[in-house]
Amino acid sequence: MPARIDIAFRLNGVGKRASVAPETSALEMLREVIGLTGTKYGCGEGECGACTILVDGVTINACLMFAADCDGRDVMTIEGVNATPRGEALRRAFVEHGAVQCGFCTPGIMVQAWHLLESNPHADQATIQRGIEGNLCRCTGYKKIIEAVAAAEAVERGQTPVEQSREVQRG
């Protein structure tokens, strides 16, 4: 009988229990066991950043983390990032600045950008570029993503308020 490990951790601020196989990745656990699908599988090798999550306040590739290693730790996914003021500012900036095309890389980049601004509130353009170097995007050419992160950063500093979208978004 293969081993199962019972773990307990905080997920997006709420206590969570799960039973996982030892070889299961945090990504599989989040998506297939818990059902939070905002974290994406892009490569399974830590090369694309689509599965970026926060663990104890720093970002990691969920595909490279053993789920069992979540035990006792504080995990935040895109679903949790969304609910924060910084997450909201980023989301608005990503929408307004056209940083989203197919959108598959977007949640991972949102989480990475959130962490970048958390640890470096005055990130300049070069810092933003380096900050998201572990996140691949095939659609946008990154330019609008970089602009969006910079805009969200500016909002946090209270410099230029992000314009409210004139158009009410669907959904």
Binding site: G46, G49, V58, I60, N61, L64, Q112, E133, G134
Partner: peptide, 9 residues
């Protein structure tokens, strides 16, 4: 070294 995510892990 790699990326921020990998440097963190």
């Amino acid at each position: 070294f790699a990326s921020d995510q990998l440097r963190n892990a």
